[in-house]
Amino acid sequence: MRITRDLKKRRFWAKLSTQTFAAFGLLSAGAGVTDALIPGSLAPVGGFLLIAVAIASVIYGLIRAWPRPVQQSYSSPSTEIYITEGDLFGQDGHVVIGMTDTFDTAIPHIIDQNSVQAQLLKRAYLGDTQRLDDDLNKALEGKPSAGAFQPADSKPGKQNRYQLGTVAVLEPAIRKLYFCVAYTKMNKRNEARATVDGIWRCLNSLWDEVRARSNGEPVSMGVIGGGQARISQHLPPQDAVRLTAMSFMFASREERVTSRLNIVVRPEVARDLDMLELQAFLKSLRPS
C-alpha cells in the first residue's frame, strides 16, 4: 500500500519529529507561563500533565506528517495538480497519449503492446487499428511535416514524420478527447528516442493544445519518458513527474490551461516514487 511505503520514507519521520517537538515545546511553554503566573498550581498534576503533553505532541505530529493524497491547489492561476496511482484510462476528463513523430500504430511489431498507446487502441478504439489511423490522419491534416523516410531506409510502418510537439486530437467518444503528442523521434529501425530538452518543448506545445481544446476540463497523463522513449536513465520517474508539473505550472501562469492536471502513475512505478517529496515539490510551485 502507498501509505505503508510513505511511512518508511525519511521525509515522513523527519516531519513527524519536527512537528512533535514543535508541539511539545509550545505546550511546555504554555505550562511554564501558567506556573509562573500561578506558582504551584501545576504541582499536583505535574506528572500527569507531562504525559498528557507528550501524548498530545505525538498525536499532533502524526496528524501533520501522516501521508495524504498528493495534490495541490493553486489560486494564481486557479488550477490543481493531482499525482495519483491508478488507471490512466479510468480518470475523468481528457487523456494525454505519448506517441512518436511518425504516429505509428502497429502493435506489437512497432508499438509495445503494454504501452499507453496500445491501451488507447484497445480501450478507446476496441482494437480497430484502421479507425485509429483514419482519425490520426484527419487530425494531422495541415500539420507541418518533418520529412519522410526514404525507400532505402526500409522502415516498416509509417513513413511520414511530423515535428516534435505535434499534437493530434482524437475524439472517439463524445466529450472525451485524446491529446496524442509526438515527443519521441522514430528511426528506420523503429527505435524511439527522446531528450529532456525535447520533452520540455513538446510539453509546451501540448499545453497550448489543451488550453485551446479542453474547455477547462481535467486532463490526465502518465509518467513521460519511460518505456520506448529510452530516456529513463536521464529522466527517472521522480524527475519526470516534477518536470511535467513544473511545465504545466509555468504554462498556467501565462494563461490558465485547465482546471486540473492528473499525473497518473502505474503501481509498479509508484513503488519507486517518494510521494511526500512530490507533495513538497507541488507546494513549492505556489507563487511566492
Results as ranks from 00 to 15, higher is better:
A106V: 10
V95F: 08
D134T: 13
A148R: 13
G93D: 02
G147P: 07
D153P: 11
L88V: 04
P144N: 07
S145R: 12
K143E: 13
G93C: 05
D87A: 04
D134Q: 15
Y125M: 10
G147L: 09
G90I: 10
K143W: 07
D87F: 03
L88G: 00
N137E: 15
T105P: 02
A152E: 13
A106F: 09
D87L: 06
Q150Y: 11
S115V: 07
N114P: 00
H109C: 02
T129H: 12
R123E: 14
G86N: 06
V116R: 00
F89Q: 10
S145F: 05
V95Y: 06
R123I: 01
D135M: 09
R131G: 08
D104W: 03
A106H: 03
F89M: 12
G98I: 02
L121D: 04
T100M: 06
P108R: 05
E141H: 10
R123W: 11
A139S: 13
A124P: 06
A124R: 07
F103G: 00
G86I: 07
G90F: 04
S145Y: 04
Q91T: 13
K138A: 13
A146Q: 05
M99K: 07
Q119M: 14
I111T: 07
S115M: 08
Y125A: 09
I97Q: 05
K143C: 13
L126F: 13
R131P: 06
R131M: 14
Q150F: 11
Q130W: 14
L136S: 12
V116W: 00
D134I: 11
L140C: 07
Q130H: 15
D133N: 15
D112H: 09
I83Y: 04
H94E: 03
L132K: 14
Q150A: 14
F103P: 00
F149N: 06
D153M: 09
T102F: 02
A118Y: 02
P151T: 02
Q150K: 12
G90R: 04
A124M: 03
Q113K: 12
I97A: 01
G98C: 12
D112V: 01
Q150I: 00
L136Y: 12
D112Y: 07
G98W: 04
G98E: 14
G93H: 03
P144A: 04
G93Y: 08
A124S: 09
T84Q: 15
V95I: 15
L136A: 11
A146D: 13
D153F: 08
E141Y: 01
P151A: 03
V116G: 09
A118K: 00
M99D: 08
G93K: 06
L126Q: 14
Y82P: 03
G90K: 05
Q113R: 11
I83M: 08
D92Y: 05
E85C: 08
F103I: 00
Q119V: 03
D112F: 00
A148Y: 09
A146W: 00
E85G: 01
G127C: 08
D101S: 01
Y82T: 10
G127R: 11
A139T: 09
G93I: 05
G147N: 05
